[in-house]
Design a protein around this nucleic acid. Structure first.
Lengths: 232, 232
DNA sequence: CCGCTTAATGAGTGAAACTCACTAAGTCAC
DNA sequence: GTGACTTAGTGAGTTTCACTCATTAAGCGG
């Protein structure tokens, strides 16, 4: 025995522990490097395993990403229920939804970018668990709108899905500069402005339309009466 | 010479011709397979060259994509100017912008997906020529809004950039299902609905001044009538 | 028709995801 | 306690790409 062979002591762990360790390492590397530039070997090294081990727990790099993102998303959803339920009035609730989404993007920029870029555009996103979580996330918005309609605050002929797309689409598009690392994302102001912009289109048409025409007719009547009075 | 060596006849072409041939092949393969799954070898084969040749004309796969997409984008922009200029009124113009964008997505689904997924999210998009083209594309919207403000049709305190993000963000988000190959994209209906949804938030608050003067006059009339009734 | 420029080649390189035959750690029956 | 068994974990491949580079020869100017 000429060379000192370094003997690696292998300790076997439960599936749960290893999986958690790999997912934690993957989250960090993905968030740090992005999907493309994250190497499975780096994730493996950080998790303290060898590359092949990851494939015992995850089908592919994409599967790993999806499950890591799903774990994060579940955390987001957990404390979302209470938040919405506690707020009264459609305007306040929409403001909260918009604000909350903006704040999430602001505080979790790296993960949101991963979600927008790698997860949501993947071909098998639709059939994935994380898509299901996303539906649950956006369903809050749909519920708020439907309750607003039921309460008579909001136009009943609204395309609720389009409003949902408007809210999330606008916010995402608006956030890209920030997500790209350029410029800031002003959460409060943007939330205010978006709600102000959106709300008039949601509310029932001002009943003053009818009122105005009636009043205008009365105005013309007054004019005639005034003239008639002058004639006397 | 025992074996018949197949001699490839190499014809040299001008830079322009080769570049065009490669870009055309790349466009087709990218549109067909998407960026990831498009192999440089396949593009080379379709263009009738060998892989290495592509790198004489393009720095990298991403450079090839960017220049192919820029070529397509320039075509889009060419017949955009006239379209907008011919339309009068902010509402009609916005309807046109929205409709046009939806129609482009509808008719160029594969390329739009490429643009959204691969180009716009790339880290060096901001410094690229195609980003410049995109700015020119969206500037139409900004101009329409500013002209609407100047004409007194639209609120002057509007965050024009946010409205731009709203239009493009909403449309993109709304189109993803279609781009993913699931479901249809109803161009006309969506254009109508989005404009209806957006417009109330843009318009100046209805000038109820007229209403107020009319009501005041009616008040005075009532007073006179009451007095007259009392006098009798 | 010679020689120069450079378009084009294609074998080769490196990196990264993924595979698989094998090793040995932990467990359980006895 | 010990042998048999299950399976976590290994690490040396394999494959598939994007990308490189030394070499070749097509076309052109003098």
């Amino acid at each position: 025995m000429s060379a000192v062979t370094q003997k690696r002591v292998v300790t076997r762990q439960s599936r749960e522990q290893r999986e958690a360790a790999i997912m934690e390492a993957a989250l960090r590397v993905f968030a740090d490097k992005g999907y493309e530039d994250a190497a499975m070997s780096e994730i493996a090294a950080l998790a303290g395993v060898v590359e092949g081990t990851i494939y015992k727990y995850f089908d592919s790099k994409q599967d790993l990403l999806f499950r890591v993102m799903a774990g994060w998303y579940e955390g987001l959803l957990r404390d979302y229920d209470q938040g919405v339920a506690a707020i009264q009035g459609t305007r306040n609730r929409l403001r909260y939804i918009v604000w909350r989404h903006l704040r999430t993007i602001h505080d979790h920029a790296a993960l949101c970018r991963l979600f927008f870029r790698e997860v949501r555009t993947a071909s098998d996103y639709y059939a994935s668990h994380i898509h299901d979580l996303n539906r649950r996330y956006t369903r809050f918005t749909v519920r708020i709108l439907k309750e607003g309609i039921a309460a008579g605050e909001i136009r009943a002929d609204l395309n609720v899905g389009l409003v949902r797309d408007l809210i999330y689409g606008t916010i995402e598009h608006h956030s890209w500069n920030y997500l790209r690392g350029l410029g800031e994302l002003t959460v409060e102001d943007t939330a205010d402005q978006l709600v102000e912009l959106l709300l008039p289109g949601l509310l029932l048409p001002r009943p003053s339309a009818e009122l105005e025409t009636n009043v205008a007719r009365l105005g013309r009547l007054v004019e005639r009466l005034e003239k008639a009075a002058g004639d006397v």
